[in-house]
């Protein structure tokens, strides 16, 4: 658990972060969003003391972070950044093993761990272990970056726009994998991004920052439905919020049992989002979709009225 208590950060005379209080539970995926210069990155870096806070206290598992030695604290916290920061003169395997080596793990344990992480992130040992970072594509390099952050099995992972420099397709793949990874490993992740779709897709808790302050925080759906002010509303997409919300809800949420009208010709997977369902309807020019399970067997149907969430007696 990470707790920021009335944190303020001043650089000379400018206030970068102003009286921020935030509690992130263990296992939570917390996204810090906001325009550039809003203090989200600064907030993140104060957690592993890359930047020292000026006022207030930061606690990790109830202990103030200043009670640890800087490097000891950082070795306990995973850290991944946009430029990956991989050491260009080290092989992939050596890069991943960095923190375990700093922690003086025995060599055999490091080797096992590196192997484990590479398979976890879909990097085959034979192909990549001995490669150098500049032989990797952007996506592969970022996988290595994430593997390195996870190497010493930290409870907390700090990620500063890790996917910001990737192409949209690679980015989405990595987002889904990260989401999956977090669900499996139960890490506490603090994730900074200015890509709102990314934040909505990943976050359990969305924290909107503006001019050094937290404007609103909560579950993404809650923020979409009840933005605290115009700034949050426009940041979350303005008129597009309806589509963004639909992207977060699965088809199964609005599905009705198979009716008497027979199975509709167009199909949609039950795990697809409402947004995808809407897209299929628009594209195929139909009002009804058959909802199918993993084995492509119809288990229900979705019609346009239900999709848009119109009340039944409307």
């Amino acid at each position: 658990m990470i707790e920021l208590i009335h944190i303020t950060k001043r650089f000379d005379h400018t206030v970068a972060v102003d009286d921020v209080s935030l509690k992130i539970d263990g296992g939570e995926f917390c996204c810090l969003v906001g325009t550039s210069g809003c203090g989200k990155s600064t907030t993140l870096k104060m957690i592993n003391r890359l930047i020292e806070h000026s006022e207030g206290e930061i606690h990790i598992d109830q202990k103030p972070i200043r009670s640890f030695r800087e490097d000891v604290l950082r070795r306990r916290i995973g850290y991944a950044i946009q430029s990956t920061g991989l050491f260009p003169h080290w092989t992939v395997a050596r890069n991943i093993g960095l923190v375990p080596r700093l922690l003086k793990w025995p060599k055999s344990r490091i080797d096992t761990r590196v192997e484990e992480l590479m398979s976890l992130l879909g990097l085959s040992m034979a192909d990549y272990a001995d490669k150098y970072p500049d032989q990797l594509s952007g996506g592969q390099a970022q996988r290595v970056g994430v593997a390195r952050a996870l190497a010493a099995d930290p409870d907390i992972l700090l990620m500063d726009e890790p996917f910001g420099a990737l192409d949209p397709i690679t980015r989405e793949t990595l987002q889904l994998e990260l989401r999956d990874l977090q669900a499996r490993l139960g890490k506490t992740i603090v994730f900074v991004t200015h890509d709102m779709d990314e934040a909505l897709r990943l976050a359990d808790r969305l924290v909107v920052m503006h001019e050094g302050r937290i404007v609103q925080q909560g579950h993404p759906l809650q923020l979409l439905r009840e933005p605290a002010n115009d700034f949050v509303a426009s940041l979350l997409g303005g008129e597009d919020r309806g589509l963004k919300e639909a992207a977060l809800l699965p088809v199964s949420e609005r599905m009705v049992p198979l009716g008497a009208g027979g199975v509709a010709r167009e199909r949609i997977d039950q795990t697809a989002s409402l947004r995808e369902a809407l897209s299929v309807m628009l594209w195929r020019r139909v009002e009804r979709l058959a909802v199918v399970d993993d084995d492509d067997i119809p288990i229900g149907e979705l019609n346009f009225r239900r999709l848009v969430g119109a009340r039944v007696n409307d």
Partner: peptide, 13 residues
């Protein structure tokens, strides 16, 4: 590269 240095620091070197 600044990124490399930041990462090195962030990893706890």
């Amino acid at each position: 590269d600044r990124g490399v240095i930041e990462a090195a620091r962030g990893m706890g070197m």
